[in-house]
């Protein structure tokens, strides 16, 4: 177990390091002065000089890279070009909105998708199963940013039931929740389909196993067999799927934040791209990809912890 843990951690660290390397070298792939590129055409000459000094642009490139990595490790991601505030501080303010949206979106999808998949697997090839199957493919095929736009059109602009933009008044929980509903619906919808399909497929496989037959033969209640025994095994591939699909979830979160003007990480990166505020882009991208890598790592570890077959083989 310790070896496995060390290996997975080492691999994740290597990937993050490579991501930093790519982000760092992007600046140097573009011809021109890195300081001017990073700060954009609107930066004052003083800001350029300060940036050049701060980024140690007079040093060789490899030394600059090491300094950048060293700074990032201590939480120093540079400063915002316009407000001069530390990038890490700005990200800290925005991260909460993104995490709330991701958890709400994934949360309702799990709460609906997993039971749907179970029910479909318990009654395979019935009308219910077929309808769930078609709806699953349907929701998977609709791009999430389109769901965002249409949800905005129908429920905010057309019916006026829910607010269209922003994240709600700070401190007013009800207002914040009402601002969360539409974007969370939009990013979760295709996940309902994904999860229902995945759970159905692995449940069908598990339900054919001998120990499920034994449990049934002992006269255990069907609900206990399905949710107590079969689901515990069938949920494992689903956890892997959530881990692997998290990158896609981040992408749809970026869209939802932009469309609903929600001040999260994605909106921050987008605005920074438009303003050519590269320190913010660099820091934001690093945090977003780091988030993804951590989630994949956690999902792998949860599997190793939950599945005795994997646990024993470590």
């Amino acid at each position: 177990m310790a070896f496995y843990l060390a290996k997975r951690l080492g691999l994740s660290a290597a990937v993050i390091l490579l991501v930093v390397l790519v982000l760092f070298s992007l600046l140097y792939l573009i011809p021109g002065d890195p300081a001017t590129i990073a700060l954009g055409p609107r930066a004052t000459p003083e800001a350029v000089a300060r940036y050049a000094e701060k980024m140690h642009l007079d040093e060789p490139v490899w030394a600059q890279f090491l300094i950048y990595v060293g700074n990032a490790l201590t939480g120093d991601l540079g400063v915002d070009v316009f407000s001069d505030r530390p990038v890490a501080e700005i990200i800290g303010e925005r991260l909460g909105f993104t995490l709330a949206l991701v958890s709400a979106g994934l949360g309702w999808a799990v709460l609906l998708g997993v039971p749907l998949g179970c029910l479909a697997a318990v009654r395979p090839n019935t009308v219910f199963d077929r309808i769930t199957g078609v709806l699953s493919v349907g929701t998977i095929a609709v791009p999430s940013f389109l769901v965002s736009i249409w949800a905005l059109l129908i429920f905010a602009v057309g019916l006026g039931w829910l607010p269209a933009i922003g994240a709600g008044e700070p401190g007013d929980l009800g207002d914040q929740i009402s601002h969360l509903i539409l974007p969370a619906f939009a990013i979760g919808l295709s996940w309902v389909g994904y999860l229902a399909r995945m759970v159905r497929a692995s449940m069908l496989e598990v339900m054919g196993e001998n120990y499920i037959r034994s449990a049934r033969a002992f006269g255990l209640r069907p609900n206990k067999v399905v949710f107590g025994y079969a689901l515990r095994v069938a949920i494992l591939p689903t956890i892997t799927l959530i881990g692997m699909g998290f990158g896609g979830l981040i992408s749809s979160t970026v869209f939802a934040e932009i469309i609903f003007a929600r001040p999260g990480l994605g909106k921050m990166i987008f605005d920074a791209v438009m303003a050519r505020n590269f320190p913010i882009v660099q820091g934001g991208v690093l945090v977003a990809t780091g988030l993804y890598i951590v989630v994949v790592l956690i999902s792998d570890l949860v599997i190793a912890w939950l599945d005795p077959r994997v646990r024993e083989s470590l």
């Binding site: 990937v15 992007l26 990158g247 981040i250 992408s251 590269f278 660099q282 991208v285 993804y292």
Partner: peptide
């Protein structure tokens, strides 16, 4: 590493430049 970049994030980082 490539997969670790959510597509849109990679696009945003590149378009910025």
């Amino acid at each position: 590493t490539v997969r670790a970049f959510p597509t849109i994030i990679l696009a945003l980082a590149t378009v910025a430049l």
